[in-house]
Design a binder for these strands. Structure first.
Lengths: 193, 193
DNA sequence: ATCGAATCTTTACAGTGTAAACTTGACACC
DNA sequence: GGTGTCAAGTTTACACTGTAAAGATTCGAT
């Protein structure tokens, strides 16, 4: 059960990472509702109060896990964008494909991310996160004088909706949502500046 | 604190409704995370185990509250649809406006609904619910040979995305999303059959 | 070598969901 | 009217949770 435990008794070494990894493990095997400070501690082989000392409270642990999840999410999108045509349209389609691929590959982490984002403070949305990637990729499609957030929301929520459909298995034999995404891109309109 | 308590000791009368109302009250005042069986029981003035006897478990209580929330949600959309032009476009725009109005008027209930929907079984999506309204309103826009769920998702997730933006206050002075919804309708395309 | 600070453990407590047994009231039936 | 039956709430009990507080241990700088 225990993941890593070198130094004797106190001073684990990098408990932070071990606890996050334990949390991801629990998410994958038992889902979001099963995640608890005490289970993480047990899986990492430390006392039940150790996580609170590191992350403050349960919310803090969740955010730490989400940070890791966001990093992997971003990586997914970057690789898919790189595998697409090197045009503004191609890159945007690429991150959308990456988005869906991540939701398929890591449903537990995906759920965690999007259950937490509803209380996410603005401060967490800097350029290094997936929001930054989205913003950069959408930028060429934002008409002058329009709030970029309008365009970003159209792309993001559309892909999110399709991801939920897929996770619920309601997208059985219907064609992949490339069509819908491409249609959205056409609708968003003009060529990049 | 107590809402209703007529019959002495046992046999409340309609504890079911009283507990749902208490739950809504808690949601509105303290948010989703504060909702618990025991607090509902206390607010309704019954013993702490009574809710479980009625709803099975916490999940059951949440679904019961969500059912009521969905009813009010549907009502919102129906009235807004009735206040719009009596065309296919008008009705669709109307339910989108109703959607946003509900999210603004009842953020707690809105959050409850959309945190629960991720585990919603297909069986709950019958015609009497808001999904039925959405399906009917979208029907004229579904091209022949296309899975209706594709179109419904485009509308639903777009409006949902804007609702989240608004709840987070990120839609400050930008024009109301009528524009975006209208653009989506144009993109969805052809006139109703 | 010592002192302070960081790291984890121990102990403790209130709140939670939930199962089980018990009590009360309502209602049909004779 | 007495009686049995059943549903609705209550009581009791327990395991699990987050979290605060205080103690033990190790690291690192001085």
């Amino acid at each position: 059960m225990e993941l890593t435990k070198d130094k004797s008794r106190h001073h684990h070494g990098n408990l932070h990472a071990a606890l996050v990894e334990a949390g991801i493990e629990i998410l994958r095997s038992s889902g979001l509702d099963a995640l608890s400070l005490r289970k993480c501690a047990a899986l990492a082989g430390v006392s039940h109060a150790a996580p609170a000392h590191h992350f403050g409270n349960l919310e803090g642990l969740k955010w730490a896990i989400a940070e890791e999840a966001f990093a992997r999410f971003s990586e997914f999108m970057r690789t898919h964008a790189a595998a697409s045509d090197d045009t503004a349209h191609g890159r945007l389609l690429g991150i959308c494909r990456g988005y869906l691929a991540f939701a398929r590959a890591e449903p537990a982490l995906y759920e965690m991310i999007f259950c937490l984002q509803r209380k996410e403070p603005e401060s967490k949305r800097d350029a290094s996160t997936s929001y930054g990637i989205l913003r950069d990729t959408c930028a060429p499609f934002v008409p002058p004088g329009t709030d970029p957030v309008i365009i970003e929301t159209q792309v993001w929520s559309l892909v999110h909706g399709f991801a939920l459909l897929e996770l619920h298995g309601r997208l059985g034999d219907t064609p992949p949502p490339d069509d819908a995404i491409l249609a959205l891109l056409r609708h968003i309109g003009q060529e990049p500046a």
